[in-house]
Simulated assay, not measured.
Amino acid sequence: MSRGWFRKKDKKMTANPRLAHAPADHPPVKAAKIGLLVANLGTPDATDYWSMRRYLNEFLSDKRVIDFPAWKWQPLLQLIILSKRPFTSGKNYRSIWNNEANESPLMTITKQQVAKLRAAVAARYGAEVMVDFCMRYGNPSTESVVDRMVQAGCEKILFVPLYPQYAGATSATANDQFFRALMKQKRQPAVRIAPEYFDRPSYIEALAASVERVYATLPRRPDVLVASYHGMPKRYLMEGDPYHCQCQKTSRLLRERLGWEKGDIDTTFQSVFGREEWLKPYTVEHVAELAKAGKKNIAVISPAFSADCIETLEEINGEIREAFEHAGGESFTYIPCLNDDDLHIAALMDLVGDNLAGWIG
């Protein structure tokens, strides 16, 4: 370890955060720490038109999300899409908004996750590791939290995108923003990026336990479990994005852990946007086909989301449920995301522990 990691043990440093050999006008030096920074997609600050427009503009202007040339995409986005979509998106968010805390469920749940992670990290590593979170879009911004960590003395940062499966439009863009934030720091910390965790046993165990817990409360077992993942253009798969393959493997490992037969879990994709072909089958169409085929009792789980959000609380429990019931479906059960479940926190700590190896015991 470098000498800096032992500053906190120096009694002189504790009393006066200045190096013993430094001149009197030397700026204070913080005791060295390790930062654990978890990142999620983001959320609008409020549901009004301008809050929604700012959020959607940042999200839909991301070249990782929409990779059309700016000259073609930006006029359409600014003049048409952002004139209308903030109204409909705001209405959707209002239907799930946490009015008591005046924030989206994603923000509420992320705070709960981080509180539990902070407690688990403190129990394992003590005060040497600082835990915080940021959002790729909206607040708290990645740049602001990276700056806060550096100012607090974090000379090493482990960055953990909260996406079980890797995708360019999620994991990669979160990493991009993290690197952009580092570019603005005079003294850059050493950094590590935690990889995707779609096939880690602890994550699969947490998923399986959530299914078993909900199934135990139902009067009869659903005919099929639909694993609905966020979609992406099929073109991205053909260009080398591993997301589709990792989703398929997550579903297979979940089925094997549950001890189920092939056909007991269907893998589908939701949240289609635009006219381009996306990964199929589309969840909204597939659940209707299940109902028409006589499978009137289904459950839906969302393994790609670490926390419940607009895509799960509004889209799955709204549009997708309605499509199933309209086609003759009778019983629709949504299995919540892992959120701040203890097994989920344990899985994240498993990931964190592996990626802090060599930095701290």
Rank of each mutant, 00 (worst) to 15 (best):
K11A: 11
V121L: 05
V29T: 15
G90E: 05
Y163A: 07
L279F: 13
R255I: 10
I360S: 04
R220C: 05
A304F: 00
D45C: 07
I81R: 12
Y229V: 07
S51L: 13
G274R: 10
F179W: 11
L37N: 11
D264P: 01
R200L: 09
Q270S: 11
S251F: 10
P69W: 08
M135C: 14
K156I: 00
F273V: 08
F159H: 06
V300W: 02
S306E: 03
H244C: 08
Q74D: 05
A39M: 15
A181S: 12
F59Y: 13
D308K: 06
N139F: 06
E314F: 08
T173P: 12
M183N: 14
R3Y: 09
E325F: 10
H26A: 15
S171T: 15
L290D: 03
D264F: 01
V284W: 08
G126I: 06
E239C: 02
D10E: 09
I80W: 09
P28H: 04
A194G: 06
A347S: 14
N139H: 14
A181D: 00
G126W: 08
V191G: 02
F59A: 08
F324W: 06
G294W: 02
F59R: 09
L82P: 07
C337P: 08
V114D: 05
D176T: 06
K295L: 12
H21N: 11
W359V: 00
A115M: 04
W260E: 02
N317H: 12
I316S: 08
V38C: 14
N92D: 14
L162H: 01
H244T: 03
I301S: 10
G42V: 09
L253P: 01
D308N: 06
S210F: 01
I335L: 04
D25C: 09
V129F: 01
A24M: 03
L60T: 04
Y166H: 11
L106R: 06
S302G: 09
I301D: 01
H26F: 15
M349K: 07
P28L: 02
I265V: 13
Q270I: 01
D45N: 15
V224P: 05
N102V: 02
V114Y: 12
V300D: 11
C247Y: 03
R136N: 13
K156A: 11
H344P: 09
T110G: 09
W5N: 10
T283L: 05
P75W: 07
L60Y: 09
Q270W: 10
M232D: 10
Y163R: 10
S104D: 02
D67W: 11
Y166V: 01
Q165W: 11
L19S: 13
H286T: 03
V145D: 04
N175E: 13
P86G: 09
E205D: 08
P86A: 07
K30G: 00
D264G: 00
G231N: 04
I316D: 09
